[in-house]
Design a binder for these strands. Structure first.
Length: 623
RNA sequence: GGCGGCAUAGCUCAGCUGGUUAGAGCAUCGGAAUCAUAAUCCGAGUGUCCGCGGUUCAAGUCCGUGUGCCGCUACCA
């Protein structure tokens, strides 16, 4: 069966980081496992190059946007290379044939009526020439330049996602394993339940020319996602090589981060339905890497992991092993250098590396390196082989089920049980009593080494190449215990996974862990004043807002909307002396302007206003 | 506020459709062994399985409720 694995394509404008490396490695490892189990697989990764930010930086650098993108590509390909990611396609959205395909898809959906022209209303930053959603705004201001935005209407093209919502929901309910892990499927259903709004898919070319031109209206280009998502099908010959496309697409698996669930689990499936292309087989959503203590990685905390640095220092195999083994696929994981070193030392060096050594050394020393015959057996042999085979037989299915952690866990169990087997049988004693029996034990140990090495090869491809030297460059590939042919010569393993010495941490000066500290100058920006509530009434159609007027003295009376109706009746708060954040930018809530914020304290489901001594004068600033 | 998720040994987690004395790895302590990268193996553990109530012959596992954290979202301001 043919299969097809993809990463999300990365936006070029930003350095690739641990998250990119992880996603690529994850996708690569599933591709490699499936190849190992005999499937014909392709892997795609790549970059998304269009859009405002790239265009802006290119202009700033006085470069052609495409040339600017070209200059960024090595950052990504170098990381992939360093991570031993063996991709088949590196996709660029500036690819000619992709741009043509996007256009023909746009035309098709336009002809069907799924794309239509309408007005887009949004917060627009004129200097930045960009629309922002309410959420993007920073205190109501442009998140990029900090200037005021204005609400303007603009004509744009929209994709009518809602048309396919029901059909998609049905599909989801019928295909329980379409989205992995399952709780992400529930999240998707929740989004569908709320109803889908039309998706704006265009930008005025005069404002943002760096995109694919809309074929039926030369004044517009497509906007990011409609362009980017299509890479998945273009990468394997959609509209250009039907046979290739059809054979691989039916086995397509997208690997994405949890931040782009909306785009892949809602936009993309409805787009495909509109295009009349079958949906992919599966979407796998992984979590994020956190720093020590589960804290977000950030420069200020100094807990950012540099993948290239670690790979250069400790090797790609240990790095891959760590990210795949440590993170429970779908959940967030923690990456610290200490955990990384522990993983490497305990599992790769002590358990696995040491097993390679002890098994091969004994064969070389006592049997001149000739693989002995398994002609006899000890009381432990059958039980060992049987347990080994039980674990072995479950691995393939676990990979198909995306139970990578369980698969790796089982492989480690196989390795540990082999170490135990050697303790139980003690071939170093047997050699003195019964050489043939000793040989049989070592044969079994070598079989374990061979098979577990193969099973780990997708995870540690580079080290696997070195392990091959034991078997003179070629490891018999049968995943069946007993297929190793006796009589051939093997070599002593070199130390493949040297332990990492824990660096003596220079006594860390205990810095204040709190990273939300502000300076006095920031505090000074906040103006909190004493006030008295002189009017309070409920707000129509709102179950949580109260409209108040607060006297801040000197004739300064503010209209403030407060979300406290669940906790106070209007009459409860009348004449209360309270505190007000008085220099907040006014906000419109339910169409009413709110000119400040009443300070309150919330604990669980209780909320109380902060009340002050009524003797305090009104309108005084807290200092 | 709404929707969803999580809460299990010091740490990271596994425990599927409810069923014998609740598990793994790491860390800790004790021991065996010496083929091997001071590697390996054995043993010792410790847990009000977040609290409360319920269903059941039987609940970490199901239901209700409370608390705490996380995610998305909203009329948070």
């Amino acid at each position: 069966m043919k299969k097809y694995f993809t990463t999300a394509i990365s936006y070029v404008n930003g350095k690739p980081h641990l998250g990119h490396a992880y996603e690529a490695i994850l996708t690569d490892v599933f591709t490699r496992y499936n190849k190992l189990f005999g499937h014909d697989c392709l892997m795609l990764t790549g970059v998304d190059e269009h859009g405002q930010k790239v265009y802006d930086v290119a202009v700033e650098k006085n470069m052609d946007p495409l040339a600017y993108c070209d200059s960024l590509i090595p950052d990504f390909t170098n990381l992939l290379k360093a991570s031993d990611v063996d991709y088949d396609v590196f996709f660029r959205t500036t690819d000619e044939s992709h741009m043509k395909n996007v256009q023909s898809i746009l035309q098709k959906l336009y002809d069907k009526g799924d794309i239509y022209k309408d007005y887009y209303e949004g917060n627009y930053c004129t200097p930045c020439e960009t629309f922002y959603t309410e959420k993007d705004l920073n205190d109501g201001k442009c998140p990029e330049c900090g200037r005021e935005t204005t609400i303007i209407k603009e004509e744009n093209y929209f994709f009518n996602m809602a048309k396919y919502a029901d059909q998609y929901e049905e599909f989801l309910n019928a295909n329980d394993d379409f989205i992995y892990p399952k709780f992400r499927k529930n999240e998707t259903l929740g989004i569908l339940k709320k109803g889908l709004r039309p998706l704006c898919i265009s930008r005025k070319k005069e404002k943002m020319p760096w995109g694919i031109e809309i074929p039926f209206d030369k004044d517009f280009v497509t906007y990011v996602w409609f362009d980017a998502l299509i890479n998945y099908i273009d990468g394997i010959g959609y509209l250009t090589d039907d046979e290739k496309f059809n054979s691989y697409w039916s086995g397509a698996v997208h690997n994405i981060g949890k931040d782009i669930l909306l785009h892949h689990c809602v936009y993309w499936p409805t787009m495909l339905m509109a295009m009349e292309v079958p949906l992919p087989k599966k979407i796998v959503i992984h979590g994020f890497w956190m720093g020590e203590g589960g804290k977000k990685m950030s420069k200020s905390l100094g807990n950012v992991i540099d993948p290239i640095g670690l790979i250069e220092k400790y090797g790609s195999s240990s790095f891959r092993f760590y990210v795949l083994r440590e993170m429970s696929l779908g959940h967030d994981g923690v990456f610290t250098k200490e955990f990384f070193i522990n993983r490497h030392n305990n599992e790769l060096a002590n358990d696995f590396g040491n097993l390679l050594n002890r098994a091969t050394h004994m064969v070389v020393k006592n049997f001149d390196g000739i693989i002995p015959e398994p002609s006899k057996k000890t009381e432990h042999c059958d039980a060992f082989i049987s347990e080994f085979n039980t674990l072995l037989s479950g691995i393939e299915q676990k990979i198909y089920d995306y139970e990578l952690n369980k698969a790796l866990d089982d492989i480690m169990k196989m390795i540990r049980s082999t170490n135990k087997y050697m303790e139980d049988t003690a071939p170093w004693k047997l050699i003195k009593e019964d050489k043939e029996l000793c040989g049989a034990v070592l044969y079994n140990a070598l079989e374990s080494v061979r098979i577990t090495s193969i099973l780990l090869s997708p995870v540690i491809p580079k080290k696997f190449e070195e392990i091959k030297d034991i078997f003179n460059g070629e490891i018999p590939g049968d995943l069946e215990f007993g297929k190793l042919v006796p009589g051939k010569k093997i070599n002593k393993a070199v130390s493949l996974f040297p332990k990492i010495e824990k660096e003596k941490e220079p006594e860390k000066v205990k810095e204040v862990v709190q990273d939300n500290l502000i300076g006095i100058e920031d505090f000074g920006k906040v103006e909190i004043k004493t006030g008295k509530i002189i009017k309070a009434e409920s707000v129509e159609d709102s179950n949580r807002l109260l409209l108040t007027e607060v006297d801040l003295g000197n004739g300064d009376v503010r209209q403030i909307v407060a979300g406290i109706a669940k906790f106070y009746q209007p009459e409860d708060i009348l004449n209360k002396h309270i505190l007000v954040a008085s220099n907040l930018k006014p906000a419109i809530i339910m169409g009413i302007e709110s000119q400040g914020m009443l300070l309150s304290v919330k604990k669980g489901k209780k909320l109380r206003l902060v009340e002050i001594d009524s003797e305090l004068p009104l309108g005084k600033k807290l200092v």
